[in-house]
Amino acid sequence: MAVNRIPRGVNRTPGDRREKFPGYDVITQLPTWDVVTAGVVLRRLGPPPPIRYFTQDEEPIACALLDQILDQRHEPRVPVLQMIDARLAESQTDGWRYHDLPHDGQAWRDSLHALNDDARRAYGTDFGLLTWAKQGHIIAPIAGMNLHGTGDWHGMPAARVWSLWTRYATAAFYAHPWAWNEIGFGGPAYPRGYKNLGLDRREPWEVPDRDPDRDLVQLAREVEDARRHDTHYPHPPVIGLSRDPLHDEPEW
């Protein structure tokens, strides 16, 4: 079968995490996809283009910021930085912009420089060179301002900057077949379609969730409480927790 010829490196998840859908590989469905869609999806598994949009200064800031937003701490990583850089280099934006922000490309540049300024002021070091925990401490208040609606951050509306970063980050990450393997998503479906609609119904090739009862609320609360405890900016390290959720690889 054609699937036997798919190279090993293709069957992956970001950070090699597979607790929920062990063995699931959406790429095994490749023979059932139309060629145009297959072409678009497979391009994401090939070598990413070189960085063209971000400057040398901006690259490490963007790289660390995206790793933080998407919790990409281990190889293999979805090349989100390259995917976003390609979008910006090609001006593949949604076109619209908020009246109080420049167009997306410029807003990315301005906000990355502002983030680096925060890092320098708080720790005297560039953002990209900070430890994972310290990077998290710099980002958390911006995310917090997002949640509470308004707030100015370096002359920019914090919520809109946050939305810009996270929209680009998730649009790139969840376009990647490795991410689909991680979340159990069926991927492209033409011309095959789906036959088994309904609750707890799967196609023969779909893999059941092996860990369906994980308590996400508890998990999110732990991580987010830890972030919230750091309300004084710049943030002290998180003390009094058995582990630092911003720093350690989570065990759940």
């Binding site: 929920k20 933080q68 937003i69 998407l70 919790d71 998290g136 980002i139 995310a143 917090g144 997002n146 949640l147 996270t166 998730t170 969840y174 991410a179 991680e182 979340i183 159990g184 998503f185 969730d209 369906p212 994980r214 996400l216 998990l219 999110a220 991580v223 987010e224 959720p245 911003l246 989570p250 759940w252």
Partner: peptide, 17 residues
Amino acid sequence: EGHWGAPLREYMRDYIH
């Protein structure tokens, strides 16, 4: 909902539910 980082990834892993 304000999730990012590890919680974002966890919620997304749970997408099919």
